[in-house]
Amino acid sequence: MPRKGFYYIFIVVFVITIVGCEAPFPYQPEQSEKLVVVEALLTNQFKYQTVKLSYSVATTQDTIDPISGATVVVETKNSRIFFDESDSLPGLYISRIRFAATIDRVYRLYIVVNDKVYTAFTGVMPVRLMDSLKYEYIPEKDLYRISYVAPVFDPFEAAMYELNLNWSHVPGYENKPYDSTHARMYFYTLRTMDVNELFQPYQEQVYFPRGTVIEETKYSLTPFFETYLRALLLETHWSGSLFDVEHWNLPTNIEGGAIGFFTASSVIKRVYIVQ
């Protein structure tokens, strides 16, 4: 047998046996009560800010029930901003006025759901300029993919990056479904380092054609939100590797028994066109 052929057979056998395989795991969760979930991220952009309210679900196959009819108020200094529920998107509460969160203020959130009051407060951290993202050409696919957004570790600044990609206008993709011509990706820079971050499991790769428009948004993180995101990553992106750590519930800054977060970020944006 050619030496190369022997090598590949060995690699396949070795990877299958030693590195191991994954298979679906039959699991029925215990019965649990539905919890109120708060997703509230204010930014320093002058816009209609939003707060999303929903209930937890037993499995990810279940439909997420939005929370309708809630009272949502954000208070800062002497002003109080009311949020109204969107007509088209139940559970999404939109501020009645446009406003920007600023770094010299503390924002307090009040939510009333079925006569239960949930509160939280947050400040805003400044944001620094961001590196230019990089993408690379993959000849086998004749497509591109993101190769660098930001360092995963920076002892001086934590940040979240949201990339929105759109190639629906690229010839050949005009009539494709929305989720075949758009992508949303998240990247993070944290001031901490975790071993399962370094040995994280395989993550779906997103490939896109020349001409794709990439909108990059960088969010500054408050200390709480940095802690929250790290925990979220430990439970999502980084979980399921061979170097996993103990699992537990994410922290929350919502008082009253709800879960989720209330935070505010300074934001900067940049747009790229893949050339």
């Binding site: 046996t17 030693i18 590195v19 191991g20 395989c21 994954e22 298979a23 679906p24 795991f25 039959p26 699991y27 990810t60 196959q61 929305y178 989720d179 758009h182 992508a183 949303r184 990706m185 998240y186 994280q200 499991p201 395989y202 993550q203 779906e204 790769q205 997103v206 999502t236 992106h237 399921g240 061979l242």
Partner: peptide
């Protein structure tokens, strides 16, 4: 089995286990 990378579309998680 992989971790979701593109969050523009809905997805479902499947519990999985490693064996060697």
């Amino acid at each position: 089995f992989y971790v979701q990378g593109n969050y523009v579309y809905e997805y479902e998680l499947t519990p999985a286990y490693y064996y060697f």
